[in-house]
Each structure stands twice: as C-alpha cells, then as structure tokens.
Amino acid sequence: MGHRQGVEAVRALVRGSADLGVTHLTLFGFSTENWRRSTEEVSTLFDLLKQFVDADLDDLTRNGVRVRILGSRQGLSRDILDIVDRAESCTASNSRFNLNVAFNYGGRDEIVRAARALLAEAQAGALAGDIDEKAFAARLDTSGLPDPDMIIRTSGEMRISNFLLWQGAYSELVFMDVLWPDFSVEHMKEAIAIYQSRNRRFGGRP
C-alpha cells in the first residue's frame, strides 16, 4: 500500500513541480540493491511501473513531459523493456518538463558501465579525444541532462544511498523527515526554500 501511495505522490509532484518552475525531476524508483527484497515486493514495484505508464503516459505526453528511464537494462524482462521504450519514445519530443525515473539504477553501477563503454570504444579505436570529465559524463545515463541543483532525501535517513554519485558532486543535500508516500508539493516548496537559503560557491569565493 505504501508503494501504491508513493505512485500517487509521483503524480502530484510532477504536476506541482512544473507549476513551481522546476524543469527537471529525477525520482529513485528501483535500485540495483532492491533486487535483494522479496520476490513479491519486487513484482509489485514492477507492476506499479507498468500501471503508471499505462495510466499516465497519454497525460504526460499532452502536458509536454519528457520521460527518461535511467539505469541498467540488464535483468529486466521483455515486457518491462517494452514499457521503458514506449515511455521514452512517446515523449521524446517534449521539452516543457523532464521526468527522469531511476529504475534498476545504482550510482556505482552507472559509473562502472560508463567506464566499460569508454574502454570498449578505446579498444575499438573509436574514441576521439581525451578521456576527461566531459567524455565520461557523456557515457552516463544522464548524458545531456544538467547536474541536479538539489538532492532531497526523504524518510529521515541521512545518506544518499547510491543515487547520482557523479552528478551530485555539488548538489545541495536536503534531508527531510517525511516518508515518500506522504511527500507533497508543500514539502517540495519547503525544500526549495531551504535550497534558496544556501550559498553555492562550487569551490570558489562567495
């Protein structure tokens, strides 16, 4: 029931965030470590992804929302891969709001996959230029997306749990003692207010 209410929180937050002027929202739907959970819970999470796409894809498309699914495709069943492909292809031309869903995603796994991609290109003689931060970032799941200004961790936990490790190097971290199913647009407003009170220096002077 908590996972189902979490989907309702997603729906409300996508609508509310766009109204607040947010242009990119990345949600952690299923991590590479979540495979350790019970078969029943994993199956429920996958079913909820299907239901969300089936019920909301037309509405997201009409409202200019572009959907990207971040994470490894390895280990996902054919029906889930079809859902992922459909969500991304149907919204590919949208630009009003960017909804990124990290699914079968882990920050360390993403970095390893990017390193392997660079190595394969180098071995094939297809790598142009030096391997620098820009080249590495281009092989990440978030290629073409801006780094997050803010990362919100709900549930009262004080860690980021393998989420956007490369991209979050200079993100403002906001920890909120509210469970995700209860997270609302008002909580998002509170987090944005906290973010706006921060002085972002990126290693330089104020």
Rank of each mutant, 00 (worst) to 15 (best):
D109S: 14
D177G: 06
L45G: 00
Q196C: 12
K134E: 12
R153M: 02
K134Q: 14
D54N: 14
S95A: 09
D109Q: 15
E121V: 06
G29E: 01
A126S: 12
R37M: 05
A137C: 07
L127A: 12
E41L: 05
F103Y: 15
M150V: 15
G21A: 02
C90Y: 11
L45R: 03
K134H: 11
E133A: 12
M158D: 12
D79P: 14
M1F: 08
S77I: 05
E186W: 03
A117Q: 11
N100I: 11
R198W: 04
S161P: 07
W180A: 09
F46T: 03
R78D: 11
S93P: 04
R108Y: 15
R62N: 08
T32F: 07
N98M: 09
F136T: 01
R62A: 15
V101W: 04
I83M: 06
N199P: 05
A9G: 15
L20M: 14
L57Y: 07
E121K: 15
A9M: 06
G168I: 01
V7F: 04
L49W: 14
A135M: 10
Y195H: 01
I192A: 00
D109Y: 08
V101N: 05
D59I: 14
L164E: 09
E133D: 12
A193G: 13
A114H: 10
H24V: 03
Y195N: 00
V7G: 02
A102I: 06
R66Q: 15
R37V: 02
L164T: 07
M158Y: 13
E88R: 12
G64T: 09
E110W: 10
K50V: 14
Q196M: 10
Q167E: 15
D56T: 08
E88K: 03
R116C: 08
A55T: 14
N34R: 06
G16N: 01
K134A: 14
K134C: 07
S197I: 05
L118F: 09
D56R: 10
L81M: 12
Y105T: 04
F183L: 02
M150H: 04
R66L: 13
I194T: 13
E110P: 09
S171K: 09
S155W: 01
T39Q: 12
V84W: 13
T61I: 04
N34Q: 09
R108M: 08
D141Q: 07
R198D: 02
A102E: 07
K189V: 05
T44G: 04
L165I: 15
Y105A: 01
T61F: 09
V112H: 11
L13Y: 05
D85T: 13
V178F: 01
L127F: 11
R198C: 03
